[in-house]
Design a protein around this nucleic acid. Structure first.
Lengths: 354, 354
DNA sequence: CTGTTAGCGCCTTCAC
DNA sequence: GTGAAGGCGCTAACAG
């Protein structure tokens, strides 16, 4: 069996209390005693039982990150930041997937709150509204990631989606687009993120006196396949769009692919903009213009806020807006392109055949 | 404070033992008693303290998944499978990132073994050899994911990398390629995965009587940027390759991008094949031929093996090979392509400009 | 079938 | 500065 504090105490000929003091770095201990205990410690290769310690102290040093799906690049990249930042502070991260379904979000949040495993929760919510969250997990520190969904009871950190969306549309207009479509959404009838991006999209179009009617293709999720399907439906219209604002880079990747299959050139026929600026965006063909939220900062700030709550802060819930940047790339500019590139007729390299 | 088993017992006028029995579904309880206890249970809204339970039982129901980087699509997709499968069995997954660095792999594995948080570990190792792992975590159930790195002391599940690599090269040869380069690797001098893929690559080339000299571009990691850099270096040669075998889809994505920038057509000038078949591959332009490991099965089998170990199995370590599939797409075939596609000269849609 | 008792391993309030 | 006891909440032995 594992070696316990008692074993060490016995071995060193002192009381368990003393050993505990040494292990936890309690200041007032005689050097002789300390040396003796440390010798016993390393000799027996003692490792404290964190379970027992947590039971006693009431904290575990574990936080939970709830995201819709970890295999979606944006959430993967966000999780990466969170894990890294948390580990710098001696915290471990548990990751669970909600699938973006409100009931699963609720169940997992509830579970986390009752489980006694975790000290706090970061929830990247897609479907739950403020009122849904209100009653849940009253004693568990929770910070919302992404959209706030109108709750005033929880801390929240994210970017200004309306503003970012307007910036995207403004950019498309400036690039010469006149019929700009929006693509995105998710199963949840109340997907706040897409709701806000759509709002910004409409605001900016209205401000520019451009039409938005029938140019929004709602999708069941944020996948590439949905992006491709949305493009198919939009191209079915006689008056096809010349600009696409996709609510995620994955959607945009699917859109690019479908446009390619339909024989349309990007950006000359249609400009495309994504959202999130995942790693894939920079290397897509053509490379993808996108909104880049400061993910590292989101993680840092979210953890800051969570730790404050975990330390018992009862301050009024805060709503922190994080910076973002519009990264303009080939998919929405007509600036210089690589020498031959897509423009060159494809050669069916028959000569290479055996 | 939280309501405890004692509170419930008191409220129901029974002993803690009885309450515990009801909570844990112990069979032999009189219906009357059960009803009484359950009433008290729901009335007080009792939630068992998992920490205390685990301390008592010596198991937590948590397993750790160690991957190089969660933001890398393959590991994200794998993690998704693992989390899903584990949750079906009532297990929670903790995810940590090793960065592919042997010392971090060691430290985290060690940490997991001593932490008392976790019942078992799935390690997707990149740098540790069998002998490095031998002494570590002797009492912790561990299953290796990916490459076995010559250890005979641990269970292992993965695909046959040599065979898969040979299949890729064979496919490239059959497609007419004669100068086939390999791209991949990582910082670890002992990256077993790339080692095996390289081995398969060389075997198949030798079998076909084709040259391999100087056609391997080693990379420091599996990123798109490295793929692009590798292509740049390979194209510097006078006798440039007509086929690329990339050890990951990300590398391949970077390669595609760089080829595009250099004005080379895929697959007519150069064929490209990736590895892992991440979601991005199907929607890339051109879509990417790749090896698709059965990720769901890897997760299932790995968890099976881990649970057996967790139940105390002392059986001889097993080495299970999981199936894979070569998914042939546009990047390596000259079969029918979309109507106009890349072949059409780019039109600089000037008419659209204001 | 149910109640009583005794720890799991640790930390912390009290005394000394 | 150090030792002795108590208990965090739960479950596994034993009785009865």
């Amino acid at each position: 069996m594992a070696v316990t504090l008692r074993d060490v105490a016995q071995h060193a000929g002192v009381s368990p209390r003393t050993v505990s003091n040494v292990v936890n770095g309690f200041p007032h201990i005689s050097p002789a005693m300390r040396a003796k205990v440390e010798a016993a410690l390393s000799e027996l290769n003692y490792k404290p039982n964190l379970l027992a310690r947590s039971l006693r102290q009431g904290r575990t040093g574990i936080i939970t990150l709830l995201v819709p799906e970890i295999a979606v690049s944006y959430f993967g990249e966000l999780a990466h930041e969170v894990v890294e930042r948390a580990s710098e502070r001696g915290c471990t991260v548990m990751i669970d997937e909600t699938g973006g379904q409100p009931d699963r979000e609720r169940a997992l949040l509830d579970g986390a709150a009752e489980s006694s495993w975790v000290d706090g929760v970061l929830l990247s919510s897609q479907g739950l509204h403020g009122r849904d969250l209100a009653g849940l997990a009253p004693n568990m520190p929770v910070v919302l990631l992404g959209e706030r969904t109108a709750s005033t009871t929880l801390d929240h950190v994210g970017i200004d989606n309306v503003k970012a969306a307007r910036e995207v549309v403004r950019h498309l207009i400036d690039s010469g687009c006149r019929r700009i479509a929006a693509i995105g959404g998710s199963v949840g009838a109340s997907d706040a993120t897409s709701h806000l991006r759509l709002k910004g999209y409409r605001q900016e179009l209205r401000a520019a006196g451009l039409p938005a009617d029938g140019l929004y293709a709602r999708t069941p999720d944020y996948t590439r396949a949905s992006g491709a399907a949305a493009v198919r439906s939009l191209l079915g219209r006689e008056d096809r769009p010349d600009g696409l604002f996709c609510f995620s880079d994955e959607l945009a990747a699917g859109a690019l692919r479908e446009l390619y299959e339909q024989g349309l050139s990007v950006p000359s026929d249609v400009s495309v903009v994504g959202f999130d600026d995942v790693a894939e965006a920079r290397f897509a063909t053509p490379s993808l213009t996108s909104i880049r939220p400061d993910k590292a900062k989101i993680a840092t700030v979210a953890l800051d806020m969570l730790f404050q709550r975990m330390q018992g802060s009862e301050a009024k819930p805060r709503d922190v807006r994080i910076g973002y940047e519009l990264i303009v790339r080939e998919s929405s500019t007509l600036s210089p392109r690589p020498a031959r590139s897509l423009a060159r007729p494809m050669q069916r390299g028959a000569a290479r055949r055996p």
